[in-house]
Design a protein around this nucleic acid. Structure first.
Length: 925
RNA sequence: GGGCCCAUAGCUCAGCGGCAGAGCGCCGCCUUUGCAAGGCGGAGGCCCUGGGUUCAAAUCCCAGUGGGUCCA
């Protein structure tokens, strides 16, 4: 493997008396001032050296350390940037959560397409790493939520000019290491104890040399020099087995763990006690965890010892527990008893912080995406709280963290948590009942609850296997949870084929040589006519693809359908049925060829387009109104406009009421009546983000350095669609309905302009029609409908009663029926020509009188009911089977009451004539 | 985005091709000084909607609607 050895030979190391050494334990190469050093400094090669012996001159709280860091870099020429949301999917669609500060600048800034908001910059970015969820609380140093402090510099090679959004070199490796070293020195660290380990970094298609900064056994920072990209012909072969080559841009990507720096300054047994001491005190007090001095000492010693071990996940913790107990001279069970409640409390504090970040940034619990992640965390936290015996509502615990983090939407956060806890409680209730039932069933049979049931309970009903165990044990049922339970669940899901059918409609290769089409529809959104030159025409199976130098036709995008219309040359008029954007080229699909090089006059179908414009502006207004009525967390999950209606999918944590819908409709129409201008603005994206935040990306993330903003009322969104000039041009907005398309997402369907009038008229027509049928005024329809429904039910019951009466009257009168003697029992064979209910009632009545009943009807095909009183050896099913076969059908049922029939009603009489014979045969059988 | 599960009395559910059921709740009567409770009787169902299969569908199939849940 070609290493990046020479990459680490920094002048800074040279000038400051560093030595490059090799760790005697793990073989890692590292740089240090201490020539006599033997090991790299990182556990397990070394142990923590700062517990009870802080590594910095002073103690810092989390906030103090953050401020110290940011102001240090500010003083050294960096611009301080506000943190981004933890919901990274709000500005990029390849990840769900922000996991590192560099996520804020990927992919557009790191690739050089967009300039960074400042260069160089410093930031403290909240991050969430779900993959650490199992470690939290147990390892003493893992947290799911953390802040990554960082300074970034974006460089471009000197020999490339103008190709990238930033130019030249700001600084690179030497300066980066120097900053780190200086910061440590300023905080009073003993620089002789600091090691810089060479550890090349690879990730996400990029790579570069990197340095881990270790001090007193703790990894405080990673300095990454992102400078390479995947390239099968590249000169560097890196640790992931792939080849890489140098890029034109190179980026300083550092990561300083705020929590770890704070911990280092305090020297507490675990990181958790350093970063949220108040919350931990509160939780301990509330859960009533009080230890004697001796117990407290055991816990602290255990924490120190586990920190010294190479613990990177929970499995290691359990394995290490025994060793730690041995070393402390206590029983392993006693140790677990003492430590576990604390581990759970640490986890609760961390999870609450995670929830505060996620909910504070407007993530709404749901069964998809980030919403699902927040739901998982919340449920896990709730379980922990219950297990450890914390007696405080979860929303209050989350609020403690939200308060500390300075969120302003704390009421909404609490509301969401309460709603979600309630949902979880319902799920648990449902699950508990289900498990109880299963447990009783299997306990009765003396069998354990099978794994298949456990998987079903978890996968379809959300019940954890340990919950099942708990409930089952109360009902004396056994449960055997296999070790590989979760992989069994995964197996059940199999491979999901997310093969996206790409519409091979347009081949981008055809258009790459053509110049960008000038987009006239942005210049004047109200003009529908234009002139243009045909640059090229491609013949297709079902028409022609026409490329012009400029166009007024809006290509499908942002949920707005393509314009229709015509392109006319001197002797040809082509109907345009579709318009698409391929890169910067706009392609018109038409039914005729106006001829390459020709002048054409374009005419957009203005009625269609105007409806799209109205619906597009209406979409912004409905979203804006919904945000005001339902809360600031409301975000768009998707939208689609068409000619006669439009819809917007909004993220919301509970279902909307009819009242809320009315309020939204009223407010949206108020915006329309205000008749304020709808303005478009082209603006630098960083500027837009700084001014309006990431909420402008409701409809997706646009490309490019310049983005287009649409201002409507007090709403601002990045949007590429066409809009009316004033809100009044929308005409009116009629919300047609709402539906929950998935958990946490509500779809609003509405109509604007002409379509609103039409939709209202249709609803009105339906009501008027109903009123006419009922022969009442529209106002009386609900009441009348209710009365009719009630009367209809009453009559149904009355009919049933009458049928019964009729049946017993018939049976009693024994008219019409032919009586046959069957060894002392009388059988009555009767034809009724009535429906099945009546046949059954009659047969029942005959049986009451001690008769065997054979009743038939030719009312609808041929039907039979045969009923037999107790103690008579005739199988009704056999009789019906035989009778039914004679009318071309079948039948059956229990021995005392059977029914059947067939399509041939004309054969009924003959079949009934044979009935006595059949009865006798069956009796003798 | 995908998978799986569920929908029957006011509530919780059973029934899984052949007469619509249980427990709790509700109403009436009885027992009791009263309460807790017990006994007897009763009311209460578009078996989610729409198609299909079948002599026959709550039950099987398809589609839809509503809810739940797991995974990316």
């Amino acid at each position: 493997m070609s290493d990046l050895e020479e990459e680490y030979e920094l002048a800074y190391f040279e000038d400051n008396g560093f030595h490059r050494l090799e760790c005697s334990e793990c073989g890692a190469r590292f740089w240090t001032r201490d020539e006599t050093r033997d090991t790299c400094g990182e556990p397990p090669c070394d142990t923590y050296g700062f517990i009870d012996d802080p590594g910095f001159a002073e103690e810092y709280t989390l906030a103090e350390m953050r401020e110290a860091y940011l102001s240090f870099f500010e003083e050294h020429g960096h611009t301080r940037i506000d943190p981004y949301p933890v919901a990274a999917n709000r500005w990029r669609d390849d990840v769900l959560l922000t996991q590192a500060s560099i996520y804020d600048f990927q992919p557009l800034v790191t690739s050089g397409e967009t300039p960074p908001p400042a260069n160089p910059l410093t930031i403290s970015q909240p991050c969430i790493r779900m993959q650490d969820i199992d470690n939290v609380g147990k390892t003493g140093r893992h947290t799911m939520a953390f802040e990554m402090m960082a300074h970034h510099a974006f460089n471009a090679r000197e020999d490339v000019e103008g190709e990238y959004a930033y130019e030249g070199e700001v600084y690179w490796k030497d300066q980066t290491v120097e900053y780190c070293d200086t910061l440590l020195e300023e905080l009073g660290a003993d620089l002789d104890e600091v090691t810089y380990i060479e550890d090349p970094w690879v990730g996400g298609g990029n790579a570069g040399p990197a340095i881990e900064v270790i001090y007193k056994g703790l990894e405080l920072a990673t300095l990454v020099f992102m400078s390479m990209e995947r390239d099968d012909d590249g000169e560097y072969l890196l640790k992931d087995g792939n080849r890489y080559s140098k890029m034109d841009t190179y980026v300083v990507d550092t990561g300083y763990g705020l929590e770890r720096w704070t911990w280092m300054s305090q020297g507490t047994p675990t990181v958790y006690e350093a970063i949220y001491p108040e919350m931990i005190d509160f939780l301990r007090g509330n859960a009533g965890i009080e230890y004697t001095d001796e117990e407290e000492r055991i816990v602290q010693d255990a924490a120190r010892l586990s920190g010294n071990l190479d613990i990177d996940d929970v499995d290691d913790v359990e394995a290490a527990r025994g060793d730690i107990a041995d070393e402390l001279g206590v029983d392993v069970d006693r140790l677990r008893e003492l430590v576990e409640p604390l581990e759970q409390i640490y986890a609760i504090a961390d999870h609450c912080r995670t929830l505060a970040y996620m909910l504070g940034d407007g993530i709404v619990p749901s069964n998809v995406g980030t919403g699902y992640l927040v739901r998982m965390v919340l449920r896990r936290t709730k379980r922990l709280v219950d297990t450890v015996g914390v007696d405080a509502p979860l929303d209050e615990l989350v609020d403690m963290q939200a308060d500390r983090l300075g969120y302003e939407n704390r009421d909404t956060i609490r509301d969401v948590v309460r709603t979600e806890v309630e949902k979880y409680r319902e799920t648990l209730d449902r699950g508990t009942r289900r498990v109880e039932q299963l447990a009783e069933e299997y306990a009765r049979e003396g069998e354990p609850i099978p794994t298949e049931e456990l998987i079903e309970l978890y996968d379809s009903h959300g019940i954890q296997p340990d919950t099942v165990e708990e409930i089952a044990s109360e009902h004396e049922a056994d449960v055997d949870v296999p070790d590989d339970f979760y992989s069994l669940v995964a197996e059940r899901h199999g491979q999901e084929d997310d093969e996206e059918a790409d519409d091979g409609e347009f081949d981008p290769a055809d258009f790459t040589d053509l110049p960008a089409t000038e987009r006239l529809y942005y210049e004047d959104q109200n003009r529908m006519e234009f002139e243009a030159v045909v640059l090229d025409v491609f013949e297709r199976e079902d028409g022609y693809d026409i490329v012009l130098d400029q166009t007024m036709f809006y290509p499908e995008g942002g949920g707005q359908p393509a314009d229709h219309g015509t392109l006319s040359a001197d002797d040809v008029t082509a109907d345009v049925s579709d318009v698409q954007r391929v890169g910067d080229v706009i392609v018109h699909r038409a039914d005729a060829d106006p001829g390459k090089g020709e002048f054409v006059r374009g005419q957009v179908d203005s009625r269609r387009r105007r409806q799209h414009m109205r619906h597009h502006t209406a979409t912004h207004l409905v979203g804006h109104a919904a945000r005001q009525i339902l809360g600031d967390h409301i975000r768009q999950a998707g939208a689609q406009k068409s000619t006669d209606s439009a819809r917007i999918d909004l993220k919301h944590y509970e279902s909307v009421t009819r009242e809320q819908v009315k309020e939204i409709e009223r407010l949206a129409n108020e915006f329309v009546m205000e008749n304020v201008p709808v303005e478009q603005e082209w603006i630098d994206r960083n500027e837009a983000e700084a001014e309006y935040g990431f909420d402008i990306y409701q409809g997706g993330i646009p490309e490019g350095e310049q983005i287009r903003l649409i201002h409507a009322e007090s709403d601002t969104q990045a949007c590429g669609g066409t809009h009316v000039s004033r809100t009044g041009d929308v005409g009116s907005i009629k919300i047609l309905g709402t539906e929950r398309i998935q958990d946490g997402v509500i779809r609003f369907t509405y109509a604007a302009g002409d379509a609103a009038v039409e939709a209202t008229q249709q609803t009105e027509d339906a009501l008027l029609d109903a009123a006419e049928i009922l022969d009442v005024t529209p106002q009386d329809v609900p009441e009348t409908a209710e009365r009719f429904f009630r009367e209809w039910k009453e009559r149904g019951k009355r009919i049933d009663e009458l049928k019964e009466e009729l049946a017993s009257a018939r049976a009693g009168g024994s008219g019409g029926g032919e009586e046959v003697d069957l060894d002392g029992t009388t059988a009555v064979v009767q034809r009724l020509d009535a429906d099945m209910d009546e046949l059954r009632a009659t047969a029942n009545a005959l049986v009451e009188d001690g008769n065997v009943a054979v009743v038939g009807s030719a009312a609808d095909g041929a039907q039979f009911v045969v009923a037999v009183p107790d103690g008579v050896a005739v199988d009704a099913g056999d009789v019906v089977g035989e009778l039914a076969s004679r009318v071309g059908g079948g039948g059956g049922g229990p021995p005392d009451f059977a029914q059947g029939g067939g399509p041939n009603g004309e054969d009924l009489e003959a079949a009934l004539d044979d009935a006595p014979e059949i009865l006798k045969q069956v009796l003798n059988a």
